[in-house]
């Protein structure tokens, strides 16, 4: 009784609510964190570009020779080499390449005779959405399953989930892709068996064309994520602060989804980031199974045709994609875990 009146009194002494949220120190630290990350990011890109360039520089196979065929005369060959800048020393070639990239001029594909930018862009219109859809599938399958399995550890539900994730881990994704085609396209006729109509021509058709491959990619990734979520969640549910949350009388969903999950997600996020980066670099096999004009197919063909500028730029692009995704993951980390942000 006495306490209640005490609470009421103290509640009435209101101070301005705005003062609650001011946090200059934290903001500064966050900015410093960002700057540090950006520096590392730039350095990494430089190193990647150098190594991509050197590897392709020393690789055997003369693009000019391949373009002109074996019957070309030495003069025409030399002319083309000069035209392509292939007769220049290493650093000149590297700097020209970089300058072209940075000024937005870019390189041209030897094979298609069009800017590599345009090639990458049109392939990313397939690979990008497919990667995102695959990750969405992976996340909406794995998080609930992982949490559910952890909540029912060692009971039939958990054992079932673990069995299927084990199966998923052992399944090659192209096989799952073929299986889905056989089942849903050939037998049931719900989906086209492959190909990509293009977003402009047929938006829904394009979306539908990506659904099966994205699902195949997503399910396989969900297996790892489910197991990871489960084990991470199991660990966190044993923590003292989760017991505190129960002791406070919070609702089950608050305890699980706010107090436990936020902590459990930290290791899961890392793997999600890696998976997304990997998917953005193209899924060569699945793209071939579904006959999709994605990034994986582009680089695969370019290598076969010694289309050096394409290979170089696409590989660099993939590296950038991976680094950018990791950068985003780092930022997400920092929002989820204040210990990283305020270190």
């Amino acid at each position: 009784m006495r306490l209640k009146s005490g609470l009421k009194n103290s509640h009435c002494i209101c101070r301005p609510a705005e003062t609650i949220c001011v946090r200059p120190a934290g903001f500064l630290k966050m900015t410093r964190y960002l700057i540090k990350k950006l520096n590392a990011f730039a350095l990494l890109l430089f190193l990647v570009s150098i190594s991509v360039f050197s590897v392709l520089f020393v690789l055997p196979g003369d693009p000019a020779q391949i373009m002109l065929g074996i019957n070309a005369t030495p003069e025409t060959l030399a002319n083309l080499r000069r035209e392509l800048g292939l007769d220049q020393p290493f650093w000149t070639q590297y700097l020209t390449w970089m300058a072209n990239l940075l000024t937005g001029k870019g390189s041209r594909s030897l094979n298609y005779d069009m800017p590599v930018y345009d090639l990458i862009l049109s392939c990313m219109a397939v690979t990008g959405p497919m990667a995102l859809m695959a990750m969405i599938f992976a996340v909406i399958i794995s998080l609930p399953l992982g949490i559910y399995a952890a909540r029912h550890q060692n009971r039939p539900a958990d054992v079932t989930v673990m069995f299927f994730t084990q199966l998923g881990l052992a399944t090659p994704e192209f096989w799952l892709g073929i299986l889905l085609i056989l089942l849903l396209s050939v037998n049931l006729g719900w989906f086209a068996a492959g190909g990509f109509p293009g977003w402009r021509a047929d938006f829904w058709g394009s979306l539908k064309a990506l659904l099966l491959p994205a699902f195949a990619l997503g399910v396989i990734r969900a297996s790892i994520l489910t197991r990871l979520t489960r084990s991470s969640m199991l660990e966190v549910l044993r923590e003292d602060y989760v017991r505190t949350a129960w002791a406070k009388g919070l609702r089950e969903r608050t305890v699980i989804y706010v107090h436990a999950l936020r902590n459990a997600l930290i290791p899961v996020l890392t793997i999600m980031g890696l998976q997304l980066g990997q998917l953005l670099a193209g899924a060569i096999i699945i793209e071939n199974v579904y006959y999709l004009p994605g990034l994986g197919r582009l680089v695969f063909n370019a290598i076969g045709q010694r289309d050096l500028p394409v290979v170089r730029d696409v590989v660099l692009f993939m590296a950038v994609a991976v680094v950018v995704v990791n950068f985003i993951v780092d930022l997400t980390y920092a929002t989820v875990d204040p210990r990283i942000r305020l270190e």
């Binding site: 923590e239 003292d240 602060y241 017991r243 505190t244 949350a245 002791a247 706010v258 107090h259 936020r262 902590n263 989820v336 875990d337 204040p338 210990r339």
Partner: peptide, 13 residues
């Protein structure tokens, strides 16, 4: 609880 170091949630203000 006994352990103040671990009884508060590290990711919530």
């Amino acid at each position: 609880f006994q352990e103040p170091m671990t009884s508060l949630n590290p990711v919530l203000p």
